[in-house]
Design a protein around this nucleic acid. Structure first.
Lengths: 233, 233
DNA sequence: CGCTTTTTTGAATCTGATCAAGACAGGTGG
DNA sequence: CCACCTGTCTTGATCAGATTCAAAAAAGCG
């Protein structure tokens, strides 16, 4: 387990301005709570305050609880990313570890008060939030207008961008999430996800090894199945 | 039509710091492009740059084009709001007026460069973006896990919060968007939206007057149909 | 190697989409 | 001011894709 100062330093390096005064640096550090979250463990919040989460190491899912047995995964976040957990509104949210994680959490209000005059930090947060918004919008489009086949293709392409290892034309994926997680992220059932992966396998677009390994063998075919605009990137 | 300086002032009042120097103020003004967008007209962008939009007056929809005849409305925005239009990635985006609009547009990169050392402005943008993200996440949950009936209820409740007029227990809505818009926002078809509204009408939960008027007569029943957590706000 | 859990596959069901008319609103021109 | 016309909305019948229910197969663990 990384020690607290060490974990905080990796955060400071990424997010805080390098020219921040030592005093301010310490105030941020005082605000941070370090959490070592084991795989499949989740972090619940009191619900009255929004939280800022920095993922030092590991992989997490942000889950919204729509009602009993109806969860929607709002986003996946990997090492080095910062994201915000909304305070409870119509839904309650929790953060769950896909694999062992080292996290820093901050109450968002306090953090923003501290950063009120630190344009660099705010800019960083803004960029991060804009990125989350862009991904969330893409997810909205997928959930609103795409078929099961297209959603699975979109998911694989998005994962290949974020955690894929390229290897002469093919991409290797080591998915940290289960079929259930994929289904809950795509607004589908486990069975449908499994069937769509089987179809891709039969079509020679992907290969699967075990539960978590996937080789994207035909990236062009996969893109064609994602239902994107023909002339888009 | 409001004149350009006037439109810009209403923006400056809302977004820019009151203590911003006149020189900086003018630089922001130089960056702004005013657009008077008539109802049903849309603004397309070159796609290579993200835009910041300030809605002075009117109501807009942010539309993503997934493929021919498959549009998804990502968000509605009303007077006084600021939002960002992503650069074209896998989809192309456009902004369309639901009623006559007066907008200011800024290239996001340039705007952020100008605001680089203005913590107040950045904070404002961050709050706005965080709000957009929160709404987008709620939409994700609705599209991923809710039935048609629940989605329509959620839509009506969200609209009542944003543009509803309360009147002794009931809420009056004057919807600026068509059934098609509602459908494209909820990931449903026009017919399904219409059917769900008819069901609500038959159940006495709402009344409709003409194409655009809706009276929310039984807010509690509507909330119960939205599929929220029982104990949530 | 045997046990548990996850994943895959199959059959039936159901929700929402599609196809097809009809009703209505609201604008236009007589 | 009213009749007409156009586009929007509503309603109905059928269809398809995804869910649900059920069971077999595979993966990963001790």
């Amino acid at each position: 387990m990384t020690s607290f100062p060490e974990a905080f330093e990796s955060f400071a390096l990424k997010i805080l301005s390098p020219d921040l005064s030592d005093a301010a640096h310490l105030r941020f550090q005082a605000l941070a709570r370090q959490v070592a979250l084991e795989k499949d463990r989740s972090l619940d919040f009191d619900g009255n305050s929004s939280q800022l989460i920095f993922v030092g190491q590991g992989a997490t899912k942000l889950v919204a609880h729509a009602s009993e047995a109806r969860d929607q995964i709002v986003a996946f976040h990997f090492g080095g990313e910062v994201f915000s957990v909304p305070e409870q509104d119509n839904y309650s949210y929790s953060v769950c570890a896909l694999r062992d994680c080292s996290l820093l959490t901050f109450p968002a209000d306090d953090f923003l008060d501290l950063a009120a005059s630190e344009a660099g930090i705010l800019r960083h947060l803004l960029d991060n939030t804009t990125g989350s918004l862009r991904r969330c919008r893409e997810k909205t489009i997928a959930l609103g207008r795409k078929t099961a086949a297209e959603r699975v293709a979109v998911f694989l392409l998005a994962m290949s961008e974020r955690i894929g290892m390229e290897q002469d034309g093919t991409v290797l994926l080591e998915l940290p999430m289960s079929r259930r997680d994929i289904a809950e992220s795509l607004g589908l059932t486990i069975e449908t996800v499994s069937r769509q992966l089987s179809l891709l396998r039969e079509a020679g677009v992907i290969e699967t090894t075990g539960r978590s390994g996937i080789v994207l063998r035909e990236m062009e075919m996969l893109k064609a199945r994602a239902g994107y605009l023909r002339d888009a990137a």
